[in-house]
Nucleic acid binder design. Structure first.
Lengths: 347, 347
DNA sequence: CTGTTAGCGCATTCAT
DNA sequence: ATGAATGCGCTAACAG
């Protein structure tokens, strides 16, 4: 009987009057064991619900068949979809997933990583906290042999496999969509973080303007504090009021994140602006409810589930490859635009 | 160096020319060790980022300081909030959480539980799959000493701590809210599952009708298949069309789950019905976007985060209590009604 | 074909 | 105050 009273090899050995290693080999279908013995052992094991102790196995084999995941938050639409993708692949490959939240704090993130590392995970999947600028700890773990894959929020501070969305293109497409639909004065709401996804989305926006020969107006860009919902809401509110107070006010807004997109819509409604006649709106978001919103919201959709799947696949391949000399690659999955009423053509 | 190249007791012992047990005792601040030695050991350990191997520790101590969680799906608003609550409490108490999805399949759920059990988790938090009717496996684990707590979806097939929402009252309040606002012909959309939360919500609805002296009309109750989104959508569509074709058609719908509520709203809009003039709508859902929907959706809100927190607390107390003779209790957390445009008063 | 032994990293009991 | 020895459950090298 082991820690949780389950049957162990020893128990079976005793019951069957065989040695522990014979049992182990039988259960692992070793060629050394006679068919007869194997059957006896297997039968007993099944009858008594034997299942190997993963802790012991992990300790012995130097791995735990578990993957550590660090995300900023669990209560988040897009992240939930990514986790779902990660879990699908992990489960298929018999890896358990251990999930931890950084809550956007670099310090807490480090604690998560440390805990996962000492917990003996075989690898780590991480979407860094927006605070995180220092990747030296992660790098040091990597150098000592721990496979790491970045997903969603990427960074060039560490050399490894990375799986994200093509944020530049997504932002470019969204802005172009607005322009094609007759909107020329396009504001942009982004986060005040240094995350690459923020910069890429901003750059996509700028490039679309440039390609359309629309002058970029710095006053139409506002960066909002992401630290908490309260602060985000007040920043957004302020930004919107500012935009609408401009002499040459915008006729459309492109929003850079799930949170910002949906909250912006809510705020515009609350402030009494009519979408899209007063102002059009398109934003990054994965919510299923986009079409049920008032008005139906045009969105840039990220392949979140697929990102999770691919990131998990990359990590598992890293874990299971003996030679660690594969070229690291960065994959950017395509986003797509879902046009709805909030960006109805002006014509 | 252990499995992931981290420093072990042995390494420190060798480096400091001391025995392993001295190192172990120093790090555990044993009274047997001199202050001098302790300091030396501690200094070395910190410098080299020693962290105990959880696998080894778990194997030795017969526990892993980890909690297994089984939910039907990760990609779900309400569940994400519950997981967030669970994680908060778990992290505070230095427990890692291992999350698995049953995808509503009893078979897969059993596999999850087995995996968690053999993984040496100290306890299991489970919200059973809607397919699950047989709790004997879970009971047998419990009998062999594994602490188990049910949350959200409860069952009387197993005797343990249970944390859920007061579904009866929530449904009662929602129905009463409709009645007070002048709606008398109230339809109800529920799942076709045998889950107690489904029955409780149905009973709350019925009781409210009864208390208001409104006759319950069986034709105004439809149960939809929950097996997949496709099926759910088509069932809902059919149900709505059926309701609206009735000679004495309903003037309001009360929906029993997050999925049903939001999809029902989307479908009503698509089918061209105006809410609430053609038909009012209130439902269980926790989405932040309720007020941004078209129209703003009245909801029954569940304290999902708190449910998660409380369930985790209960489980940890079960794990850490030496004597397993505490009385099991079932806690039902209060829901609350958020009234919005979709149930505007008829007057 | 089966059994013995060793060792993964740790805590702990029992010497010294 | 320190160290040697044991065992948690498992696999694997080696012996018989």
């Amino acid at each position: 009987m082991c820690m949780n009273n389950s049957v162990t090899l020893k128990d079976i050995a005793k019951a069957l009057n065989l040695s522990i290693s014979t049992i182990s080999k039988s259960l692992n279908d070793s060629y050394e064991i006679s068919v007869d013995t194997k059957q006896k052992v297997l039968a007993y094991a099944q009858k008594h619900h034997y299942s190997p102790n993963r802790l012991a196995k992990g300790l012995k084999e130097g791995k735990s068949r578990s993957i550590g995941i660090v995300v900023c938050s669990l209560d988040n639409n897009v992240i939930a979809q990514m986790l779902d993708g990660i879990d699908t692949v992990s489960a298929d490959n018999s890896y358990q997933i251990i999930i931890m939240q950084s809550k956007e704090s670099q310090k807490q993130e480090a604690a998560c990583i440390e805990l996962l590392y000492s917990g003996g995970v075989d690898g780590i999947l991480i979407s860094p906290a927006c605070e995180t600028v220092d990747f030296s700890y992660l790098r040091s773990l990597q150098e000592s042999g721990l496979p790491i894959v970045l997903f969603d929020r990427l960074s060039d501070q560490i050399d490894t496999h990375k799986v994200g969305a093509d944020n530049f293109q997504g932002a470019y497409d969204a802005t172009m969509h607005l322009i094609k639909n007759g909107y020329k004065n396009i504001a942009h709401l982004n986060t005040n973080t240094t995350l690459s996804i923020a910069t890429e989305r901003l750059n996509g926006y700028k490039q679309a303007l440039m390609d359309s020969e629309i002058t970029y107006r710095p006053e139409l860009l506002r960066s909002c504090d992401y630290s908490d919902t309260q602060k985000l809401n007040s920043d957004l509110r302020e930004a919107i009021l500012y935009f609408m107070s401009l002499p040459d006010k915008p006729d459309a807004i492109f929003t850079a994140t799930d949170q910002i997109s949906t909250r912006c819509l809510t705020l515009l409604n609350k402030l009494g602006y009519h979408i899209p006649t007063d102002i059009a709106l398109i934003g990054f978001t994965n919510t299923d409810l986009a079409e049920a919103l008032s008005p139906a919201l045009s969105t840039v959709h990220q392949p979140a589930f697929e990102m999770g799947q691919l990131a998990a696949k990359k990590l598992i391949s890293l874990i299971e490859s003996k030679v660690h000399d594969q070229e690291y690659e960065t994959v950017m999955l395509e986003t797509y635009i879902q046009a709805r009423a909030s960006t109805q053509s002006k014509d």
